[in-house]
Amino acid sequence: MKKIFSRPESLRDAATHYCPGCGHGIAHRLVAEVIDLLGVREKVIAVAPVGCAVVAYDYWDFDCCEAAHGRALAVATGIKRCRPDRVVFTYQGDGDLAAIGTNETIHAANRGENLTVVFVNNAIYGMTGGQMAPTTLIGQVTSTTPGGRQAELQGYPLKISEMLAMLPGVKYVERRGLFCPQEIIKAKAALHLAFDNQIRGGGFSLVELLSPCPTYWGMSPAAAMDWIRDTMVKEFPLGRIK
């Protein structure tokens, strides 16, 4: 009998703590599959964010470092400069990467650090209970925008990926969505390219993944997938940005 599907070597056999329908499980698995595919599990050092994915190291079976909220790319810079032959990546949410850590994000990108960034954008703060994120859509209801996000008061959804793509130090930026199998396959291909860039010494690569948060969007898991497809992609169009 031929085995055609199994848990990636880079993923531990652990029960998930994520909510039903959460996109982190898919993203974790994709990262693990790509690392297996590239055969670099023993060379990987991951930097986990503050947010729902802080315990990513409970799922991944390789070296991991926790970073303070927003500081993942500073920590990753320190690791990668000291261990240039290791494969170092950060896994960050929208609040971590595009609000509290904007400075660290922009400057690591601008230095062209040879790092891979997995940017999970679910347009909300999950861990703290559904507050507005920098990427929250106009009109989107959160616990801190009870009447919906208003541009006049809270500004616009921050397109950090497009901003980063402008920097000469940035090699590769792509946005994908985790809302259907075809898209998930494309997301994996993007991650593969982003890690491969680093291994080849190519420079800063970032993959943004639009990811569902049914709990704080107040939707069923299926409706959350549809909301990405029908609403979120209008603000955050999919495809290669750089």
Partner: peptide
């Protein structure tokens, strides 16, 4: 060794944290 002029004091200490975590 490695020298980095960081974008902030906060970034600098967190770079040090990363370097220290990698055993340097």
């Amino acid at each position: 060794g490695v020298f980095i002029q960081a974008e902030s004091e906060i970034a600098a200490i967190n770079m040090v944290l990363g370097a220290a975590a990698s055993g340097i």
